[in-house]
């Protein structure tokens, strides 16, 4: 974590995409993800088109393809499950490499793979080009309820701290000979989860005290909003229309 980077997913660059207003990027990302999600799985061409546009955006954002690939591994656990579908699904079957699999199941795998990877790519692009404070500001400009934003803000601020605390507790346990390889040793993990909860709870109490000390009355004060310029609106509109249009054509055509 270098100086100035606000979070692990952010890539410090100076591209057009980095400079775009956060609320514009949020709208674009949401539009793209929804379009991808509603596209019927048989419209393979549509997914190809999405992938091409996302690849283009990655280039424009000066994000290295390797960075994107590594971050995409985060969806691996979900995708792994998809690989089993052809073996467990029923109905019409076909042969792949001499193994009998369900045709419907294969489509199921493709559906999950394509949508998960494309959807995750969009999210990765968003977070790689937008600092977290800006994402939060974007949410508030888009009139997302203040309570939801406060919760998100705190989650992001303290997630790293809690992970840190967990790390320290693990080190403390390991330093005293704890080696969590056997199921019989699961107890310390469970009780440390309890300790972590108590620590987080006490932290919450102290943070609340610190907020009260500065005049907090229960409502998060929000900064006044700024307008965004027209060329950005146009860019966002174009992206959303492109994706939504493709999804609609795909829906009608299949």
């Amino acid at each position: 974590m270098g100086a100035g980077h606000s979070h692990a997913l952010y890539v410090h660059e100076h591209s057009v995409v980095h400079r775009m207003a956060p609320q514009a990027k949020l709208v674009a990302a949401l539009g793209m993800v929804v379009s991808i999600a509603i596209t019927p799985r048989e419209a393979v061409w549509a997914f190809g088109f999405y992938a091409a546009v996302i690849a283009g955006l990655t280039g424009v954002s000066r994000i290295r393809p390797g960075f994107l690939a590594v971050r995409l591994l985060a969806v691996a656990p979900f995708v792994l499950f998809a690989l089993f579908i052809p073996f467990i699904a029923t109905g019409e079957t076909t042969e792949v490499l001499g193994i009998t699999v369900s045709v419907d199941g294969l489509w199921g795998t493709w559906n999950i793979l394509a949508k998960a990877l494309l959807g995750a790519s969009v999210s990765i692009l968003l977070t790689a080009t937008t600092e977290i404070p800006d994402i939060i500001r974007g949410l508030s400009i888009l009139r997302v309820p203040a309570l939801f934003i406060s919760i998100t803000t705190f989650m992001i601020r303290y997630l790293e701290l809690i992970a840190d605390e967990l790390g320290r507790m693990r080190v403390a346990m390991t330093a005293r000979g704890y080696d969590p390889r056997w199921i019989s040793q699961a107890r310390p993990i469970a009780s440390s989860a309890g300790a972590l909860f108590v620590r987080s709870y006490e932290r919450g109490e102290r943070v609340h005290a610190a907020m009260l000390a500065r005049g907090f009355t229960g409502e998060m004060p929000m900064p006044s909003t700024e307008a965004i310029d027209r060329s950005q609106c146009a860019g966002v509109l174009m992206l959303v229309v492109l994706f939504a249009g493709t999804a609609i054509v795909a829906l009608v055509a299949t």
Binding site: F154, R157, R203, R206, V207, A209, A210, M211, A213
Partner: peptide
Amino acid sequence: LVFQDTNDQLFMP
């Protein structure tokens, strides 16, 4: 009031 643990005091992004 400046709290002992700055992580309690600084809670904004």
